[in-house]
Design a protein around this nucleic acid. Structure first.
Lengths: 146, 146
DNA sequence: TGATAGAGTTGGAATTCAGGACTTAGAGGG
DNA sequence: CCCTCTAAGTCCTGAATTCCAACTCTATCA
């Protein structure tokens, strides 16, 4: 059965499987090698292969040969992959606040000098977005029936 | 095998399974009933039951009886669940831009009157966060060995 | 009396995942 | 020359999940 036509569902079809976002997190950290990604995420190697191929096919990652003999590859983010950093940071911050106990395990520094805390704002007025200030004016259709 | 100590991984342990975020999306839309959530997401009913129980146990959703005879329940967001709206919106926007073809299926209106586009900014300086302006100053450890 | 609605359960088939062993192509050390 | 190591996967098997459709249980509606 198909659900609602929705960009959240579409996005999750690309990055929503287990390990995908964790692999991308590693690439964001600058880790480019298969073995390191496997070790740092904890994913099993065959699943990781499948995920990386999927992300590559979706245009989020690029697989590049950096050595010919023996052939060796590395993974780098595409533009779409780099744009995922806001997703990762927003998820991380939610995890820091509502799931992780104790200190945040990872801290990023912003170029302004501060330890990064992100805020999600309305691009038009700059106000912080809160659930109460939103109204859906159009929602994706749910395919009818059976 | 365990991977890196990380709030992204922790967050995904709570909301990263298939259907969880889609169920939460429906609740954000104001859909509170099991049957409607099942229909609008496309999840099978048994899995949805498991997910909703998990989200409840994690404190993201609350299951409330709204009628005693016959017993009927609805799902509402907790504070932690409401805080996920920024995650959902950020994911949706990425999906709109890099996955969905054509017009965004869903549009929210912000209280300022504009159709909502979100921007992820540094809470300290207010500048938009971009990959190039970030440096990791602490990263979660990866458990050693085997 | 029969149909309908809400909120699940249940059972079996299909799929995915974990974990480890194996492969390939060369480089480096003794 | 022989042995070992590294990077990047593949392959295999058994266990765990997910999918799907049908069934249950209560109670109200027509």
């Amino acid at each position: 059965m198909r659900g609602r036509d929705c960009s959240i569902a579409n996005a999750l079809a690309v990055v929503g499987e287990r390990w995908s976002l964790l692999a991308l997190r590693e690439v964001m950290f600058g880790v480019r090698r298969f073995d390191q990604i496997a070790h740092n995420t904890g994913a099993s190697r065959d699943i990781l292969t499948t995920r990386l191929r999927g992300l590559e096919a979706a245009g989020v990652l690029e697989r590049r040969q950096y050595e010919a003999h023996p052939p060796r590859y590395e993974y780098v983010l595409t533009e779409a992959g780099r744009a995922l950093n806001t997703v990762l940071l927003t998820v991380m911050q939610w995890g820091d606040r509502y799931v992780t106990e104790g200190e945040p395990p990872t801290v990023w520094q912003h170029s302004c000098g501060a330890d990064l805390q992100v805020k999600t704002v309305c691009a038009a007025c700059g106000d912080e977005v809160r659930a109460s200030s939103l109204t859906p004016i159009r929602v994706g259709a749910v395919p009818a029936g059976r």
